[in-house]
Design a protein around this nucleic acid. Structure first.
Length: 417
DNA sequence: TCTGGGGTCCTAGGACCC
DNA sequence: TCTGGGGTCCTAGGACCC
């Protein structure tokens, strides 16, 4: 018998804060102070009308005694790792799906449904006792059904879904609420007169194969209780790509400004790359137009890179392939693909290693310095992006550090680096 | 919701090759 | 070789997720 548990932390970031500070318990709490919008909302705050994405100013008006906290992502990560450890005590196969969610395959633990339910309950009890916060769990024959089940009762819910009650659940699930059905697919389903998950599952296999592509076909099987997606044991640490993007306002058609935004994003992405001791070979950079269209270009390096100025030189050479001076852009982004551990050093033919190594040493120093004074160092090519923020009166940590940097007379690191 | 940021996976269609 | 058919590889962009 297939038995998959889906485990979902309730308003995870908010209750991590509560678990760390008992005085917050029972009070309305939101995180996201540094972004100015609510990122996580405790159920006490939800009960009083606060929702995700709401502006902090509006929240204060609505709930004067609200507790607003900045995100503490290191803390959430530590608690997340404890969560995985607890689940792994009871299940051999655990997929770390996101910081607050995981799947566990307990199929082989027992042939009795009652016992499987017992195991899931034990996982829930241990999580809540050890971590001081609540979780919602679903137990079902496939991952997709387990997702439906864990959402059924929230917060602190536990919902077992056996094959025989599957249809009873699915008749009340709007098709757009199913994991894997987004806005576009949802609209298509409406056109085909499919409103609920049950209606979708009742279509014939041949009909599904005619109308939908692979991912949606797999969803059909999953919702019909046939496992298509195994619980993988992948670790979130192994990323395949690293990305940095930023939206700016107002939109711009100024090439120099856009290049400076790309430079900023490149520095950010490379910082993350070096922090994880990785290197990248394929770098994709893109512009996002005001009309939400993307135009991008992929740079392929023969030897892996970790250093922003090398990338920016190539970006500048190629930007004209995607940039149109008559188009307004609202964001830029840089994606590092082809990632490998930095220790795998590819010797290159032209004996450039010495030069590269010197730069690496400089950047090792920069990374150490950055830890002490976040935001204090950046490429000269990022300068315009930073001064633009000043114009926009955006007060944030970066800006403060920039001012501090000016006051203290730190040098800017130019492209000579 | 006129729309943030960081990820993954899929696919149509172009390039290239018999 | 004005022109068929079919395979493979690659990439830009779409769709979805948290």
């Amino acid at each position: 018998m297939k038995a998959i548990v889906h485990i979902d932390g309730d308003a995870f970031f908010a209750y991590c804060e509560v678990a760390q500070n008992e005085r917050l318990r029972g009070k309305p709490v939101v995180t996201g102070q540094e972004k100015g919008i609510a990122i996580a909302v405790s159920y006490e705050a939800k009960a009083r009308g606060v929702s995700r994405g709401m502006l902090m100013g509006d929240i204060r008006k609505l709930v004067p005694d609200i507790i607003i906290l900045p995100g503490n992502y290191d803390l959430y990560k530590v608690i997340s790792q404890r969560m995985y450890r607890i689940v792994k005590r009871h299940a051999p196969i655990v997929e770390e799906y996101s910081v607050d969610e995981c799947f566990a395959d307990i199929s082989d633990q027992s042939d009795s449904w009652e016992e499987l339910v017992g195991i899931a309950r034990t996982i829930k009890r241990d999580l809540e006792q050890d971590l001081g916060m609540t979780f919602s769990l679903g137990l079902a024959p496939t991952k997709t059904l387990a997702k439906v089940a864990s959402k059924w009762v929230k917060p602190a819910g536990f919902t077992p879904m056996q094959e025989r009650d599957r249809e009873n659940f699915l008749k009340d699930v709007p098709i757009g609420a199913v994991w894997g059905i987004g806005r576009a697919m949802s609209a298509e389903m409406q056109k085909l007169n499919i409103r609920t998950a049950l209606e979708f599952t009742q279509k014939s296999q041949s009909w599904i194969e005619e109308y939908f592509s692979k991912p949606t076909q797999e969803l059909w099987y999953e919702l019909n209780g046939v496992q298509m997606h195994k619980v993988g044991q992948g670790n979130l640490e192994k990323h395949k790509s690293i990305r940095a993007t930023r939206t700016f306002r107002p939109p711009s058609k100024n090439l120099a400004f856009i290049l400076s935004e790309l430079s900023k994003n490149t520095e950010k992405a490379c910082g993350k790359l070096r922090k994880h001791n990785l290197q990248s070979k394929n770098i994709y950079f893109f512009l996002k137009t005001q009309a939400f269209m993307y135009k991008g270009f992929e740079l392929k390096f023969t030897a892996p890179v970790t250093i922003p100025s090398e990338i920016m030189n190539a970006v500048k050479e190629n930007i004209h392939k995607i940039f149109r001076s008559d188009t307004q852009y609202r964001a830029t982004g840089v994606v590092l693909n082809g990632i490998s551990p930095a220790s795998v050093h590819q010797p290159d033919l032209f004996n450039m290693n010495e030069k590269i190594d010197n730069r690496k040493i400089v950047y090792e120093n920069i990374d150490a310095f950055y830890k002490k004074y976040p935001g204090a160092i950046f490429l000269a090519s990022s300068l315009q992006a930073i001064t633009q923020r000043k114009k926009n009166q955006i007060k944030n940590k970066d800006q403060e550090m920039h001012n501090l940097c000016l006051r203290l007379g730190f040098p800017y690191w130019g492209e000579a680096v």
